[in-house]
Design a binder for these strands. Structure first.
Length: 296
DNA sequence: AACTTATGACTAA
DNA sequence: TAGTCCTAAGTTG
């Protein structure tokens, strides 16, 4: 489900409702039982992200950080919130909203609600609940291990300094040193951390870059523009809670399925700019979408 | 009940 | 490149 913008929103949700609070940790499903037991009744001290990686800091006393939980959601993991944190996340993504018919909006006689499905980790405060389902990774890491994970990642378009020249040039250099297709490179988390399949398709379209062009053969100027577009789109994604890439003046009212995206999941439909049929192909096991006319 | 799909990433060969 | 892992929801039979 998640690209970098969604992970950043999760960190904001944890910041708002869990950081500074004492937390009961459990693993209803059992697969994180030891880790949950170790941190049970500790205080959450921080929520940080890099790319698609989420790190939750905990300590035995308020304000301390002794352990980190490292969570990677993979293709279909997710968090469900309830209670006060549900209200917090309602300003945010539709995807973070629990099913209102099943989870109570505020603590009630049904508090806390029964775990639904395979809940790997439950984090509970007096007022808020977060259930982790289907993560690719959920493990305790030390600060050193966390630094190692972050060091293996490339620059993150959601970093505060993402639009600074050194960061932009870092991305440009990482792409231009490889002859692999640029469409493959931008999905490589050591090149640009947090970019996923939708942002890849949409930003390459918006900057007119053919995904099959070798990294070495894309000009530094075009790659700089691509980086800047990742930053613009992903910052928008954090605010809006959804990946919306089509500029308002290009939206097609007659095409309800084209409201959000130019090319992603629009195979065979006419390009919003030139009318050419949008193409789809498999690139390293992931679906790639592009306009062969607009992207050269 | 079985199968399909999904905004991801790893390992083995 | 293929296989593996993590889960829920939708579709098909």
């Amino acid at each position: 489900m998640p690209e970098g913008h969604a992970i950043r929103r999760l960190a904001l949700a944890f910041d708002a409702s869990f950081v500074g609070e004492q937390c009961e940790l459990s693993s209803p499903q059992g697969r994180f039982a030891a880790g949950a037991a170790q941190l049970d009744r500790w205080w959450m001290s921080a929520a940080q992200t890099k790319g698609k990686h989420l790190f939750l800091g905990f300590g035995p006393e308020p304000g301390e950080t002794e352990e980190w939980i490292h969570v990677h959601l993979g293709l279909y993991g997710g968090w469900r919130f309830a209670g006060k944190s549900e209200v917090g996340t309602a300003l945010t993504p539709q995807r973070l909203d629990p099913d209102p018919g099943i989870l109570p909006a505020t603590p009630s006689e049904h508090w806390p609600p029964e775990p639904r499905g395979a809940v790997r980790l439950r984090i509970l405060t007096a007022e808020s609940l977060a259930d982790l389902i289907g993560p690719n990774r959920c493990q305790l890491v030390t600060a050193e291990e966390m630094a190692g994970i972050e060091a293996r990642l490339g620059p993150d378009p959601l970093a505060d300094d993402a639009l600074s020249e050194p960061v932009r040039q870092d991305f440009v250099a990482r792409v231009r040193k490889s002859s692999r297709p640029v469409g493959e490179l931008v999905m490589d988390q050591s090149v640009s951390a947090g970019v996923g399949n939708i942002y890849r398709a949409e930003a390459l379209f918006r900057t007119g870059i053919n995904p099959y062009r070798a990294g070495t053969r894309v000009s530094a100027a075009r790659l700089g523009a691509l980086w800047d577009d990742f930053v613009v789109l992903m910052r928008r994604g954090v605010i809006e809670g959804a990946i919306n890439t089509v500029e308002p003046d290009e939206a097609q009212d007659w095409d309800p399925e084209a409201e959000r995206w130019y090319v992603y999941h629009r195979t065979g439909r006419p390009c919003l700019r030139c009318g050419t049929s949008i193409r789809q192909a498999d690139l390293k096991g992931r679906a790639l979408f592009w306009c062969p006319q607009c992207q050269r």
